[in-house]
Amino acid sequence: MKNEHNTYLGLVFGAIKTLLIGMKTSIKVYFRKKVTEQYPENRKELKMFDRFRGTLTMPHNENNEHHCIACGLCETACPNDTIKVISKNIETEDGKKKRILDRYEYNLGSCIFCMLCVNACPHDAITFDQDFEHAVFDKSKLILKLNHEGSKVEEKKKEQ
């Protein structure tokens, strides 16, 4: 069997066999369901894959609370100066000074979707969602504020 491929006729028949295998494979693909997404028509049911990087978002829970502690690690990690974390100092009820998030500014126009900010975040406060329809008519509309109005940081539940 081994030196069949070294003889002239063995080579010919081996070649015909492999060519037919190739043609069988391609005709199977020909009748398979096509993978093409027809985008504007199917935008209702279009589902991007899980790891798709659409827009940077800051998830809020039902009490309008987020995880951001305004540490600014994302801002330092960003290679493009896309993120600006603007914080303010407040005094809590028990008299402690605390730095909390005021505005989380994200410029979609300069984001390169490298995901370094999400990887840098120690509290998983930010993530990329699936939304990719980014076109707007004015550049200023690309600067997004990610924390919602009146939101506050979610307090850690103290384990007793």
Binding site: S26, V29, Y30, R32, K34, V35, T36, Q38
Partner: peptide
Amino acid sequence: VCGFFQCRLGPN
């Protein structure tokens, strides 16, 4: 035909 062989739809 090329599109179908590559699992695409071709011009549409």
